[in-house]
């Protein structure tokens, strides 16, 4: 009877030391993964400042916060107006180029028409008990949503850091937004 072990397969098998090293490596990876904050994250980029387009980022931000997400909303260009304490209360709706509005473009382009369409929308919002932009913003802030105002566009629009609601983060740029997006489970550009 032969006492030979099947050498062919033993040659291919990793050595005990190699296995031990691999186990150490996996244990390290596991510890690292467990250390990471396991809460879900959402990152929104808000670029629009019209009354209608101010709603989606705020509705989704407050709702995600209710789900327990860590939410960051990075506001840039016209999206800055949503965070601007004065301008946020006076966001406009335009019917020019908006085929959903019941006004032909030629009429919509007349002076004062934006004011009319904005008033119409504001009345609908009030009649329907839809939250105002200010309410949604305050609620989101209370729920821990982080609102960031893009520094480059603050300078471009000639805004002052004090113009924004208390709790708004300033002094951030595209790299901050990119980092948030890379770490987020949901990323949206509005």
């Amino acid at each position: 009877m032969s006492t030979d072990t099947p050498d062919a397969s033993a040659d291919d098998a990793p050595s005990r030391a190699e296995l031990a090293a691999r186990v150490d490596e996996l244990e390290d990876a596991l510890t690292e993964a467990a250390d990471e904050d396991d809460s879900k994250k959402m990152s929104i980029i808000a670029t629009k400042g019209t009354l209608d387009m101010a709603y989606p980022p705020l509705i989704l931000a407050s709702t995600a916060a209710a789900f327990g997400y860590d939410v960051t909303v990075f506001h840039t260009f016209w999206g800055l107006d949503i965070l601007h304490e004065e301008r946020s209360k006076d966001l406009k709706l335009s019917s020019v180029g908006n085929p959903n509005m019941p006004v032909p473009n030629a009429v919509a382009a007349l002076p004062g028409m934006d004011r009319v369409t904005t008033k119409m929308m504001e009345k609908k919002i009030a009649d329907n008990d839809t939250a105002t932009i200010e309410e949604l913003l305050e609620t989101s802030l209370e729920m821990g949503v982080e609102f960031q105002a893009c520094q480059m566009t603050i300078d471009l629009m000639d805004y002052d850091e004090d113009d924004f609601y208390d709790g708004v983060t300033t002094g951030v740029g595209a790299a901050t937004a990119l980092q948030d997006m890379a770490n987020a489970d949901i990323q949206l550009l509005v």
Binding site: I59, S62, A66, N128, T139
Partner: peptide, 11 residues
């Protein structure tokens, strides 16, 4: 109250 307030206030 309309969306998203019922959920947000419930939370």
């Amino acid at each position: 109250a309309s969306c998203p307030m019922p959920v947000v206030k419930t939370k």
